[in-house]
Protein backbone atom coordinates (compact mmCIF):
# COMPACT_ATOMS: atom_id res chain seq x y z
CA UNK A 1 0.00 0.00 0.00
CA UNK A 2 1.11 3.53 -0.68
CA UNK A 3 0.08 6.92 0.56
CA UNK A 4 -2.21 8.64 -1.90
CA UNK A 5 -0.51 11.96 -1.34
CA UNK A 6 2.89 10.41 -2.14
CA UNK A 7 1.58 8.81 -5.33
CA UNK A 8 0.13 12.17 -6.37
CA UNK A 9 3.47 13.86 -5.81
CA UNK A 10 5.04 11.37 -8.23
CA UNK A 11 2.32 12.05 -10.80
CA UNK A 12 2.82 15.80 -10.37
CA UNK A 13 6.56 15.41 -10.96
CA UNK A 14 5.99 13.39 -14.15
CA UNK A 15 2.97 15.32 -15.40
CA UNK A 16 4.73 17.36 -18.06
CA UNK A 17 1.82 19.61 -19.05
CA UNK A 18 -0.86 16.92 -19.13
CA UNK A 19 -4.51 17.70 -18.41
CA UNK A 20 -5.55 16.06 -15.14
CA UNK A 21 -9.17 15.16 -14.32
CA UNK A 22 -9.51 14.43 -10.61
CA UNK A 23 -12.64 13.28 -8.82
CA UNK A 24 -14.08 13.66 -5.32
CA UNK A 25 -11.59 13.27 -2.45
CA UNK A 26 -8.77 12.88 -4.95
CA UNK A 27 -9.72 16.26 -6.36
CA UNK A 28 -9.17 18.04 -3.07
CA UNK A 29 -5.91 16.25 -2.48
CA UNK A 30 -4.71 16.76 -6.02
CA UNK A 31 -5.52 20.46 -5.76
CA UNK A 32 -3.21 20.70 -2.78
CA UNK A 33 -0.41 18.73 -4.45
CA UNK A 34 -0.54 20.46 -7.82
CA UNK A 35 -2.74 23.52 -8.14
CA UNK A 36 -2.63 24.03 -11.89
CA UNK A 37 -5.20 25.54 -14.25
CA UNK A 38 -5.02 22.39 -16.44
CA UNK A 39 -6.74 20.46 -13.65
CA UNK A 40 -10.39 19.68 -14.18
CA UNK A 41 -12.37 18.66 -11.15
CA UNK A 42 -15.09 16.12 -11.71
CA UNK A 43 -17.81 16.03 -9.10
CA UNK A 44 -21.60 16.21 -9.01
CA UNK A 45 -22.31 12.64 -10.08
CA UNK A 46 -20.09 9.70 -9.26
CA UNK A 47 -18.38 7.89 -12.08
CA UNK A 48 -18.12 10.60 -14.65
CA UNK A 49 -14.39 11.37 -14.40
CA UNK A 50 -13.29 8.78 -16.93
CA UNK A 51 -16.05 9.77 -19.36
CA UNK A 52 -14.98 13.41 -19.00
CA UNK A 53 -11.44 12.26 -19.67
CA UNK A 54 -12.52 10.42 -22.79
CA UNK A 55 -14.27 13.53 -24.08
CA UNK A 56 -11.17 15.61 -23.42
CA UNK A 57 -8.91 13.00 -25.02
CA UNK A 58 -11.03 12.79 -28.17
CA UNK A 59 -11.41 16.57 -28.35
CA UNK A 60 -7.68 17.13 -27.94
CA UNK A 61 -5.93 14.06 -29.36
CA UNK A 62 -2.42 15.54 -29.22
CA UNK A 63 -2.68 16.25 -25.50
CA UNK A 64 -2.02 13.74 -22.72
CA UNK A 65 -5.04 13.38 -20.43
CA UNK A 66 -4.66 11.78 -16.98
CA UNK A 67 -7.73 10.70 -15.00
CA UNK A 68 -7.49 10.28 -11.22
CA UNK A 69 -10.54 8.11 -10.66
CA UNK A 70 -11.80 6.50 -7.48
CA UNK A 71 -12.59 2.82 -7.06
CA UNK A 72 -16.11 3.56 -5.83
CA UNK A 73 -16.58 6.02 -8.65
CA UNK A 74 -15.46 3.54 -11.30
CA UNK A 75 -17.90 0.97 -9.93
CA UNK A 76 -20.74 3.45 -10.53
CA UNK A 77 -19.86 3.73 -14.23
CA UNK A 78 -18.10 0.46 -14.98
CA UNK A 79 -19.29 0.40 -18.58
CA UNK A 80 -16.82 3.22 -19.20
CA UNK A 81 -14.05 0.60 -19.44
CA UNK A 82 -15.62 -0.94 -22.51
CA UNK A 83 -16.33 2.43 -24.10
CA UNK A 84 -12.78 3.70 -23.56
CA UNK A 85 -11.20 0.45 -24.75
CA UNK A 86 -13.35 0.49 -27.86
CA UNK A 87 -12.55 4.11 -28.66
CA UNK A 88 -8.88 3.47 -27.79
CA UNK A 89 -7.58 7.02 -27.31
CA UNK A 90 -3.79 6.67 -27.21
CA UNK A 91 -3.46 9.85 -25.11
CA UNK A 92 -5.56 8.71 -22.14
CA UNK A 93 -4.10 7.43 -18.86
CA UNK A 94 -6.67 6.19 -16.35
CA UNK A 95 -5.47 5.86 -12.77
CA UNK A 96 -7.79 4.39 -10.18
CA UNK A 97 -6.94 5.38 -6.65
CA UNK A 98 -7.96 2.23 -4.85
CA UNK A 99 -8.65 2.72 -1.15
CA UNK A 100 -11.57 0.31 -0.87
CA UNK A 101 -13.96 2.92 0.42
CA UNK A 102 -16.45 5.62 -0.47
CA UNK A 103 -14.30 8.17 1.27
CA UNK A 104 -16.17 11.36 0.39
CA UNK A 105 -19.31 10.31 2.25
CA UNK A 106 -17.79 8.79 5.33
CA UNK A 107 -15.37 6.02 4.37
CA UNK A 108 -17.89 3.21 3.90
CA UNK A 109 -16.47 0.10 2.27
CA UNK A 110 -17.06 -0.50 -1.43
CA UNK A 111 -18.73 -3.84 -2.26
CA UNK A 112 -15.68 -5.33 -3.91
CA UNK A 113 -13.20 -4.30 -1.24
CA UNK A 114 -10.15 -6.55 -1.37
CA UNK A 115 -11.63 -8.88 -3.98
CA UNK A 116 -11.92 -6.88 -7.18
CA UNK A 117 -9.04 -6.81 -9.65
CA UNK A 118 -9.66 -3.44 -11.32
CA UNK A 119 -6.66 -3.74 -13.62
CA UNK A 120 -7.89 -7.19 -14.61
CA UNK A 121 -11.24 -5.66 -15.55
CA UNK A 122 -9.57 -2.97 -17.64
CA UNK A 123 -7.32 -5.52 -19.34
CA UNK A 124 -10.28 -7.76 -20.10
CA UNK A 125 -12.18 -4.76 -21.48
CA UNK A 126 -9.36 -4.17 -23.96
CA UNK A 127 -7.18 -1.34 -22.59
CA UNK A 128 -3.79 -1.27 -24.29
CA UNK A 129 -2.07 -1.72 -20.94
CA UNK A 130 -3.22 -2.33 -17.37
CA UNK A 131 -1.29 -2.80 -14.15
CA UNK A 132 -1.71 -2.76 -10.37
CA UNK A 133 0.72 -1.04 -8.00
CA UNK A 134 1.00 -1.92 -4.32
CA UNK A 135 4.15 0.05 -3.58
CA UNK A 136 5.30 3.56 -4.32
CA UNK A 137 8.79 2.66 -5.54
CA UNK A 138 7.59 0.39 -8.32
CA UNK A 139 4.93 2.90 -9.33
CA UNK A 140 7.46 5.73 -9.42
CA UNK A 141 9.83 3.60 -11.48
CA UNK A 142 7.15 2.69 -14.03
CA UNK A 143 5.38 6.05 -14.16
CA UNK A 144 7.38 7.56 -17.04
CA UNK A 145 6.55 4.53 -19.17
CA UNK A 146 2.88 4.57 -18.12
CA UNK A 147 2.67 8.17 -19.29
CA UNK A 148 4.55 7.67 -22.53
CA UNK A 149 3.28 4.37 -23.92
CA UNK A 150 0.29 4.40 -26.28
CA UNK A 151 -2.98 4.29 -24.38
CA UNK A 152 -5.49 3.76 -23.19
CA UNK A 153 -3.37 2.92 -20.14
CA UNK A 154 -4.89 1.83 -16.84
CA UNK A 155 -3.23 1.55 -13.45
CA UNK A 156 -4.80 0.73 -10.09
CA UNK A 157 -2.91 2.34 -7.21
CA UNK A 158 -3.48 0.61 -3.89
CA UNK A 159 -3.52 3.37 -1.30
CA UNK A 160 -4.25 3.56 2.39
CA UNK A 161 -7.74 4.83 3.15
CA UNK A 162 -8.00 8.25 4.72
CA UNK A 163 -4.27 8.80 4.81
CA UNK A 164 -4.42 12.50 4.06
CA UNK A 165 -4.22 15.23 6.63
CA UNK A 166 -7.69 16.74 7.13
CA UNK A 167 -8.74 18.13 3.81
CA UNK A 168 -10.35 21.43 3.15
CA UNK A 169 -13.57 20.45 1.39
CA UNK A 170 -13.98 23.74 -0.40
CA UNK A 171 -17.10 23.14 -2.49
CA UNK A 172 -17.36 26.78 -3.48
CA UNK A 173 -14.04 26.44 -5.22
CA UNK A 174 -14.94 23.06 -6.64
CA UNK A 175 -18.22 24.13 -8.25
CA UNK A 176 -17.31 27.66 -9.19
CA UNK A 177 -17.74 28.88 -12.74
CA UNK A 178 -14.34 30.55 -12.29
CA UNK A 179 -12.72 27.12 -12.10
CA UNK A 180 -14.06 26.13 -15.50
CA UNK A 181 -13.23 29.53 -16.96
CA UNK A 182 -9.69 29.17 -15.70
CA UNK A 183 -9.44 25.71 -17.28
CA UNK A 184 -10.80 26.87 -20.63
CA UNK A 185 -8.34 29.74 -20.63
CA UNK A 186 -5.44 27.41 -19.88
CA UNK A 187 -6.48 24.95 -22.55
CA UNK A 188 -6.95 27.60 -25.23
CA UNK A 189 -3.32 27.71 -26.38
CA UNK A 190 -3.47 23.93 -26.90
CA UNK A 191 -6.40 24.09 -29.31
CA UNK A 192 -5.80 23.94 -33.02
CA UNK A 193 -7.62 26.40 -35.25
Amino acid sequence: MMQRMASFEKIRDARDGAIVVATYTSAFEWRRVDPDPLNFVSVGAMGQASSHGLGLAIGLPEQKVIVLDGDGSLLMNMSTLTTIANEAPDNLVHFVIENGSYEANGGHPIPSQGRMDFAGMARAAGYAHAATYEGLNQFAADLPELLSRPGPVFAALKVEAGDAPPLDYDYDWLHSADRRREFRKAVKPLLKD
Binding site: G47, L54, G55, I58, G59, L60, R184, L190, L191
Partner: peptide, 15 residues
Protein backbone atom coordinates in the same frame (compact mmCIF):
# COMPACT_ATOMS: atom_id res chain seq x y z
CA UNK B 1 -24.88 8.33 -18.86
CA UNK B 2 -21.31 8.23 -20.11
CA UNK B 3 -22.28 10.50 -22.99
CA UNK B 4 -23.35 13.31 -20.67
CA UNK B 5 -19.90 13.49 -19.09
CA UNK B 6 -18.18 12.85 -22.41
CA UNK B 7 -19.91 15.78 -24.12
CA UNK B 8 -19.05 18.01 -21.13
CA UNK B 9 -15.41 16.96 -21.38
CA UNK B 10 -15.38 17.70 -25.09
CA UNK B 11 -16.96 21.10 -24.45
CA UNK B 12 -14.10 22.00 -22.11
CA UNK B 13 -11.68 21.70 -25.00
CA UNK B 14 -13.90 23.52 -27.44
CA UNK B 15 -15.48 20.54 -29.20
Amino acid sequence: QEGVALCAGADLVGA
